[in-house]
Nucleic acid binder design. Structure first.
Lengths: 247, 247
DNA sequence: CGACCGTTTGATGACCGTCAATCAGGGTGG
DNA sequence: CCACCCTGATTGACGGTCATCAAACGGTCG
């Protein structure tokens, strides 16, 4: 456990400013939030279904994801999270977790007490607005995933998730030139999109064969952005970014 | 267009109090909100994708639903709404609609200007909390639908949506004894759950044949609540109700 | 170099979509 | 009062997308 510093909270500020406008006072107040930092190994739960956490978690480095478990080992991944995200922000007003939160890769995480966030919201209405707005964007992304899982083909779903994660990373300065780190396994993609890993594999081979995507070391390369967007019917409006993401 | 009165806003108060606690002052302030009332026929859009509404809409009577359209006429229904719901509350902080909102049945709707809601939130923090919480419960329901569409069988999904809507109606006093009005067509159910109307039909026949559900006039009857919950792996935790729903 | 994790491949078939008719009930008009 | 119509429910035939099971492969790391 260590204490927060301006540099530690930079990802959070960057993220909030990608979806909202903060006054100087609010930005400063956010930087002053007390935070304890911890490093967790890959595939470790941060918060579990049914728990009642007393703090929110900011992803500082690495990727995390939220998921629900069903009977017979079925699993649904609800979202992927990257630096700057606060994946359990909803716990501020929903006492009981209705899903779990885990690290995907090794992560540096910052934990901020609920009471500090409540105080922030009370004294800085535009900080409150930014956080509320963050949870609303979260919901907008759920809606988009829902329509993908419900009504898109496997090809469309997979194309869509690549587009979305690229834009998400690009918005916080962690990706450009249609390349980004891609630590998500095919099993993970399957659990996120309601597909089997086998089918994900076949579809991804297909996308590679068609020259839409490629891989270089640990990076995903999107060779044909327009084609991928068309295939996934991707339109970033639902992400509600304040600034335009670079194409 | 007419003006609001206490009686008009009763459904909203009831809904907010089903998921949050309001101070007397806040409850009073909500009742004082300016609202214009309109009646819309079934299957009429209330707000459309890409629009920038300037007010939120309270369902006073009737059912509404949100949906997204994709190419080739595919459609995903995102949620069903009943009296008390504010289906476009997210528009308070997300300027551009990323989906559409329509009436399912004939509806009496109350429209409240965004500016009035912003003022309410500024002056009554616990009203702000209740509204924020409402959008968070909304998101929690999206997550649940997502896992249903992604990982449940057609039988499970359909069972689940019956359980959910019954609990939702029961929470605002519009259903009891495992019966409720059911104006949702099989096509609607299909679009909500990522299924074809034909398949919905076959599964529902199956559920009827197994004695789990029935119909009486315009009412849905759940004959075997426990079996339906088990089939749909339904656990109402994710709805985050303040008071226990009657079983 | 062996173990492990993730990817890849093959074979089989179930679940569910599509297409196309038909049926049934409630509302309307002659 | 009944023919007509419209919407929604129902049925049948057929096939595709995708799941499942099982095994092999390959890169990475200790």
């Amino acid at each position: 456990m260590s204490s927060a510093s301006d540099a530690e909270l930079a990802p959070l500020i960057r993220k909030l400013e990608s979806i909202a406008t903060l006054s100087d006072a609010a930005r400063h107040a956010v930087c002053e939030l007390p935070m304890s930092v911890r490093v967790l190994e890959p595939e470790h739960d941060i918060a579990r279904d049914k728990e009642q956490p007393a703090h929110c978690c900011v992803v500082l480095t690495g990727w995390a994801y939220r998921y629900k478990l069903l009977n017979e080992g079925r699993r649904q991944i609800l979202s992927f999270h990257v630096p700057g995200d606060v994946p359990d922000l909803q716990s501020l007003h929903l006492k009981v977790m209705d899903h779990s939160l885990a690290t995907l890769t090794q992560c540096r995480l910052g934990f901020i007490p609920h009471e500090s966030l409540h105080a922030l919201c009370l004294h800085f209405p535009d900080a409150a607005t930014a956080l509320w707005r963050d949870t609303l964007v979260d919901a907008a992304i759920f809606r988009e995933w829902m329509t993908g899982i419900g009504r898109r083909t496997a090809h469309g779903r997979i194309a869509h998730v690549f587009c979305e994660m690229y834009v998400k990373l690009n918005a916080v300065g962690l990706a450009e030139n249609h390349r980004c780190l891609w630590p998500v396994t095919q099993v993970n993609i399957g659990d996120a999109l309601g597909l089997s890993n086998v089918h994900v594999n076949r579809v991804m081979q297909d996308l590679r064969a068609q020259g839409m995507i490629g891989r270089q070391g640990r990076e995903l390369i999107i060779h044909d952005w327009d084609a991928l967007c068309a295939l996934g019917e991707f339109d970033e409006t639902y992400m509600h970014l304040e600034r335009k993401a670079a194409a």
